[in-house]
């Protein structure tokens, strides 16, 4: 016997707009991880990202009547998550010092571990990218080379360099989110079959 098909986003959103709260729960299950990883990709702190992702889902609940269906629900959430996280970071400087002015040792340790892990995953992914894309990213973000230097190295205009960097960053962020969600090995396996 076939399992009943999961309700579509449109169905759940319509129910939610009609006040059916369980629909929110199903959307929460479906998309909260995506929101979490979007928040994490910006703030780089898991505890904070977890907290922010709950706030983003609450915002979605409160504003679902404004969702007109012009985009995917996930895209709408993605935008809310991005704005909410950036707004939070602009209002807080929690990574610098705690309230006493002394660095919080546990937080620093945790953040350092997170940063090291992030770097490890990022570098692994970068080294699987095509040669030119890999060189461009490493020269810019590891060596700190200027756009002018990259123009000369790759014989491209500044705007072309910036566009390639932007695309590469987006691709890398997407791969990073996949690695966090499904595991780095799974993502590397995908590279193998591509």
């Amino acid at each position: 016997m076939k399992a009943p098909a999961a309700p579509s986003d449109d169905m759940l959103i319509a129910e939610l707009k009609n006040g059916v709260k369980s629909a929110f729960g199903q959307l929460y299950t479906r998309y909260s991880k995506l929101v979490f990883h979007r928040c994490l990709s910006i703030c780089k702190d898991r505890d904070l990202a977890f907290d922010l992702s709950q706030e983003v889902m609450l915002k979605a609940w409160e504003n679902v009547h404004q969702f007109r269906g012009d985009s995917h629900f996930s895209t709408w959430l993605y935008v809310i998550a991005t704005r909410h996280t950036l707004l939070y970071l602009s209002r807080n400087k929690r990574f610098e010092m705690d309230s006493s002015g002394v660095p919080d040792e546990a937080m620093v340790t945790s953040d350092q571990m997170d940063a090291e892990e992030t770097n490890r995953i990022m570098l692994t992914l970068i080294h699987r990218l095509p040669e030119q894309e890999r060189q461009l990213l490493l020269l810019k973000y590891q060596q700190g080379e200027s756009i002018e230097t990259l123009e000369r190295t790759f014989n491209l205009s500044a705007s072309a360099i910036k566009m390639r960097l932007k695309r590469s960053r987006e691709r890398l962020n997407a791969l990073y989110s996949l690695a966090l969600t499904y595991g780095l090995d799974q993502v590397l396996n995908i590279f193998e079959v591509m």
Binding site: K21, S22, F24, G25, Q26, Y28, T29, R30, S32, K33, F36, R46, A49, F50, D51, S53, Q54, M57, L58, W61, T181
Partner: peptide, 24 residues
């Protein structure tokens, strides 16, 4: 964190708690 988010989704699906109820 994934487990917590999934569990929160289950909670909001099956209980009447408001989405402002946070999990710390």
């Amino acid at each position: 964190y994934h487990e917590m988010l999934e569990a929160d989704g289950y909670y909001f699906t099956h209980y009447s708690g408001h989405p402002s109820e946070k999990t710390h």
